[in-house]
Amino acid sequence: MLIPTITAIADADLAGKLDHAINHKTKPLGSLGMLEPLARQVGLIQQTIEPQLRLPAVLVFAADHGVTDEGISAYPQSVTWQMVENFLANGAAINVFARQNDCGLYIVDAGVKHDFGARENLLDFKQGPGTRNFAQEPAMTMQQCENAMLVGMKLADTLTGDVLGFGEMGIGNTTSAAALMHKLTGIPVAQCVGAGTGLSEDGVRHKQQVIEAAVALHASANEPLDVLATFGGFEIAMMAGAMLQAAAMRKVLLIDGFIVTSALLVAARLQPAILDYCVFSHCSDESGHRLLLAHLLTHLKARPLLQLDLRLGEGTGAVLALPLLHAAVNFLREMATFDSAQVSEKSAD
């Protein structure tokens, strides 16, 4: 499979022009806080000192996971397809927030164990009726994993906007995300595992034990794509592909919570420069997400925009952060400079 090539956004000349533009707006230096480096980042991604955000959209990928057979979720697997129906009926939180923020919303059946039939507003790219139980065998074949990634790449290629957010739905996918996190970072399983949809302490311990046993069973899976095929889900693989293609097209990637970040982790192992294109919307309340963000952001001098104790998924955090992204771009494009407003700048010390 051909992985899209992603170019780092570093450009000293353009960075200098962006810094000059930001620093000469009618405000004290640095007074817009995190919006200032965010504006700089978007300018570097779009290669302009006047960036803009056209047609922002979020893709919500849904799929089922065979590992739910191990009793690792507080909810039955049927909730996956029931929530997809809720998305299609415009009744979920992501529907509310997408409408509120004028954000396009696309629901993708990546591999739900349910026959929806032909449905308006549902993109049917089902790779199968959920993955296999990775506690017993690899979740996907390599061919299935690569096919899911290729579908994600093609989807990203069809969207013309400048910003692409990512969301997911899949009972059991925090277990997949925790396994991916452990295998690709080396962080102990106990620090990767959380309550997911609301497990008790005993449930969390069981979930940890299931992952540890599966990791021992599949000890030979170490390369990023092998790890993804062994422990991932159709929705996670499809997201990773979409992220890679979107970054190759110089789109801003708006990253949601734990499961979305685990897909990004895989993509970053394949193309490290993808992190330059990522805006991390929030730090979720799911145990492990903070550590995973810290692992990814060590060299980026970046941090999540919001801390709202979210753990819903669906792309909700990404869409809630979208107004901040607009604010960063709009102040750079529209705010007056000291010269244009005839306002005196700070005197030299």
Rank of each mutant, 00 (worst) to 15 (best):
L18W: 04
R333V: 02
N222P: 14
E345K: 12
S78M: 13
Q144V: 03
K126G: 06
A214F: 04
V42M: 04
I107V: 00
Q46L: 10
R250G: 01
P37T: 11
Q127R: 10
F87Q: 09
R54L: 09
H114I: 02
P224D: 01
L275R: 06
S347F: 14
A10I: 04
K17Q: 06
A74N: 03
L18I: 02
L150C: 08
D115C: 10
I72E: 02
A89T: 10
Q41C: 06
H295L: 06
K301A: 15
V193I: 07
I236T: 11
H289F: 13
M142C: 09
L122S: 05
K207A: 08
D309L: 15
Q47P: 07
R40K: 14
V60R: 14
N23G: 09
V210M: 11
A139P: 02
T197D: 05
D19K: 09
D226T: 14
I107F: 02
T185N: 02
E120R: 05
S176L: 00
L296F: 00
P272C: 01
A110I: 10
K27T: 02
D339A: 15
Q52S: 12
F134A: 02
V163D: 03
L324F: 04
T337L: 07
E85M: 08
L180V: 09
P224K: 03
Q46N: 07
C283R: 15
T5S: 14
R250C: 01
V42Q: 03
Q82H: 11
V227R: 06
Q191A: 15
I9C: 01
I94L: 11
E168I: 15
I274V: 09
A294T: 12
D11T: 02
R290L: 05
N133P: 05
H295A: 09
A237G: 05
D109W: 07
I22W: 00
E212S: 15
V42R: 01
F87E: 04
V58A: 09
G167W: 05
V96A: 15
V67F: 00
D226G: 10
L322E: 10
F125A: 15
S281G: 11
A328E: 07
H182K: 15
S200N: 12
G198R: 13
G232K: 10
D115G: 05
A229S: 04
V67H: 01
R54K: 11
S176V: 02
T68Y: 11
A62Y: 09
I49S: 06
E286G: 06
M142E: 14
H289Q: 13
A341P: 05
I187F: 08
V343F: 06
I6A: 04
L55F: 08
A190C: 14
A21F: 00
L105H: 02
N121Q: 10
L180H: 07
